[in-house]
Design a protein around this nucleic acid. Sequence first.
DNA 1: CTTATTTGGGACATCAATGTCCCATTCAGG
DNA 2: CCTGAATGGGACATTGATGTCCCAAATAAG
Lengths: 198, 198
Amino acid sequence: MSTTEIPESGTRGRTRRAILAAAASVLARDHGATLADIAEAADVGRSTLHRYFPDRQELMKAVVEDSLEVLGRSVAEAQLEDGPPLEAMRRLIAAMVGAGDRILFLWGDPRVLAEYGPRADDGCEDGALPVDDPVLRLIERGQAEGAFDPDVAPAWIQQVLWALVFTGYENADKGLIPRHGVTPTVVRTFENGIRHRT
Amino acid sequence: MSTTEIPESGTRGRTRRAILAAAASVLARDHGATLADIAEAADVGRSTLHRYFPDRQELMKAVVEDSLEVLGRSVAEAQLEDGPPLEAMRRLIAAMVGAGDRILFLWGDPRVLAEYGPRADDGCEDGALPVDDPVLRLIERGQAEGAFDPDVAPAWIQQVLWALVFTGYENADKGLIPRHGVTPTVVRTFENGIRHRT
DNA sequence: CTTATTTGGGACATCAATGTCCCATTCAGG
DNA sequence: CCTGAATGGGACATTGATGTCCCAAATAAG
């Protein structure tokens, strides 16, 4: 690749990040949000937004990339290869919840990943993200070591994971659950389901 | 209420239902779908669509109402008051999956229920739907009878239920899971979580 | 302090979706 | 078979979002 990765000098970098964060936050709650909405949320003029991201598609692509990167870092820090699978999974859930709005944004509309995801330009899109890989490995390890249900597909477990984290974060966002209660609640339900254990 | 409920004579009723079904199906997969898209999916001219639903808002409102009604009937047929809670819950899950696209539509975008839901006109909107009530009663009964986890809020259990059904149906829609596998898989995960049981 | 960068906002053209109206055609029901 | 309802599609005005351009003001960097 010959794309010169400019280090984003101080000022420009800060505005760029502000726009990306605001975009993720706004779009997470309203997929049809206007560029004007996003600019306003970022405390930035609409023309400034256009200066950083020529058109809506470029912005979307950048937000997806950025969100995936942030999420990827969180997941990496969770050190999924280490320790018992169940504990690693708890760290993962905490990490995902910690990634905040970006989860809402990425997961909220299946189309964003399909259209603006990593390989949306190639035809070959299965939804396989860089983030997915370590997670799937953890799930498979957990099944192999007898910690996770071996009778369902790893991909399904992963889907459930995303769905529960998303739902938990969303409920907290609406004030139905206290912020600090999200991770424990999701962990509990994810591990045990809703059946009563004596 | 003085709204004269016209029984929808044969022809008109059929087209109306076709539009509503197509709308739910299309909007479930693309929240930003055009009225032209919907009309095309319903095999109907755009002008015919406008004849039945003057503007987009009216259509949305009608689709939400219709979806809630269909879902409500499915839930009612599940007879949630009868038998052991765990079995009633399984019937409920099967019923929800059976409601098809309407679940995707209703759950896919939180805003549709907030904006076009039953009491979107009143200010007092908590997300309390007619469908929710029997479900919450079942959950509370299940907790009281020692079948469901009593240490989490009923509302949370319900959210998880919706989320899992949604995810299961969506995965089947994408071909990741066979149609007939959705209900059993959702039931299994919902009841037991992902932990391995010896 | 001086200069170059960055910004906000206005003016503007464009485009797609929407909603309205109309008329010829088709279809269902008597 | 005949009649009225229902439909499809075209033409049209309107609206809101988008993208572009430009300039004066603010801000950072030297």
